[in-house]
Design a binder for these strands. Structure first.
Lengths: 235, 235
DNA sequence: TACTGCATTCTTGCATACAAGCGGCTTGAC
DNA sequence: GTCAAGCCGCTTGTATGCAAGAATGCAGTA
């Protein structure tokens, strides 16, 4: 995790997730290797890893292309995410330990502070922790890993959802209901609450569309290279 | 998909899944590159890809090590698999089309023939098709991909389950109940039937243990290199 | 005799050189 | 003027060389 290829992978992933590149943009091995001050070898290894997690598509003899999922696919991913998290809850209801419940309560205190002060990024961090704890509480390490992976991948599309002021309070209330169900050991209720918490429905529909447009919009200059990428690369 | 690194990846994956290497065995870049008659570069790219799918662990400056999941992790994976497939069924019940149902019926005919003749590998192929069709019927392409991925990864641990003569007929009957529920559009029933079909319970427990021992057993020679690997490499 | 430190050797990580496609451009012919 | 074919250049894919780090073995000391 200290190799150059890992560092490059981290940075490239960050750039892609932040929307530094346009949809379908070809990543130039030479330019990028110069930018990161590494040779093509570790860069190509980073490409492989990013392609494996779905952020790039490698076309033989043509190059690496940035791939933002289509809006439809994002909905599909949220649909699966909702189910995975609901399953975490179902398992957690029977397996959650007292220390973990205490940790969950702590995130609730954190979230409450964030809601009261309207501090979105504070809430965002506490929310991350809340969900990570639920994955952990499932007691299924493999499930925890899969959930974490998908959660990461959906990150750019979750960004704006919390900016909606009403959403913060709603989200907080939902967290409360989930924890209550877990504390009672009610697997069914916990799963249902979590599914509702994640699923794209009602107002979240529009929030997602906006998030999506911001994350995956194509901003190209005259030469077909995205101006955002040019900025990101200092061109 | 025609590059040497892809070919090497395919072959290595096959070898690992077939159990050609011992648990924890270090894969020698130079020996393997000689064996596959490629340079270290495409081999290393294959390592990266296999590490991404969890078959290898890459330790910095130490090398690539074969990683068979612990028995506990296999159970966890089956637990998640059951849930993913159950979710596929839940979605499929509302979305399945007439042509797909017809295809599913075709696999049932195939399975029936295999059961009657006791042809396990025939049943195995028909079973693969059955499950692939269910994933497809979910109408969620992302879910389909994830389910397929996990299904592949569990392949070596499913091998022996069908060798149990009683299991074939049971499995067939379960398929029937699943299709019936789908045809009726009963999402709840379809999900429950599928979950029961996949979940490790009852007699399947012992079958899995045997499969696991066969897949992940460590067979080492005096020099610490697995004799199975030596055979596979023609040493 | 056991443990620690150093040196040697082997292996990986990275850089670079070379080969092989693919695409675009130019030129020629109809 | 347009279309097609061939060539040139650019990009990716692969091989190999070199450097740095880890493991192992040996020697010296406690």
């Amino acid at each position: 995790m200290v190799s150059r290829s890992d560092l490059v992978r981290e940075k490239l992933e960050q750039m892609i997730v932040e929307g530094s590149f346009a949809q379908g943009e070809r990543l130039d091995e030479i330019k990028l290797s110069q930018h990161f001050d590494v040779s093509r070898t570790p860069l190509r290894e980073a490409f492989q890893a990013l392609a494996a997690s779905g952020l790039l598509v490698l076309e033989p003899r043509r190059g690496a292309f940035v791939r933002y999922p289509a809006l439809e696919e994002v909905f599909e991913m949220f649909e699966v995410m909702a189910e995975l998290e609901a399953f975490c809850c179902r398992l957690a209801a029977g397996r959650v330990t007292q220390p973990l419940l205490a940790d969950l309560d702590k995130t609730m205190v954190d979230c409450k502070q964030a809601v009261d002060s309207g501090d979105v990024s504070h809430y965002y961090r506490a929310n991350e922790r809340f969900h990570a704890l639920i994955y952990q509480a499932s007691g299924n390490r493999f499930l925890e890993g899969e959930a974490t992976r998908l959660h990461r991948r959906l990150k750019p599309f979750r960004r704006l959802q919390l900016n909606n002021r009403g959403r913060l309070a709603h989200s907080f209330a939902e967290h409360g209901r989930i924890i209550d169900a877990l504390a009672k050991g009610d697997a069914q209720a916990a799963a249902i609450e979590m599914r509702a918490h994640i699923a794209i429905q009602g107002g979240k529909f529009n929030d997602l569309i906006v998030s999506y447009r911001q994350a995956a919009r194509k901003v190209t200059g005259e030469d077909g290279v995205s101006t955002r990428a040019q900025t990101a690369l200092g061109l």
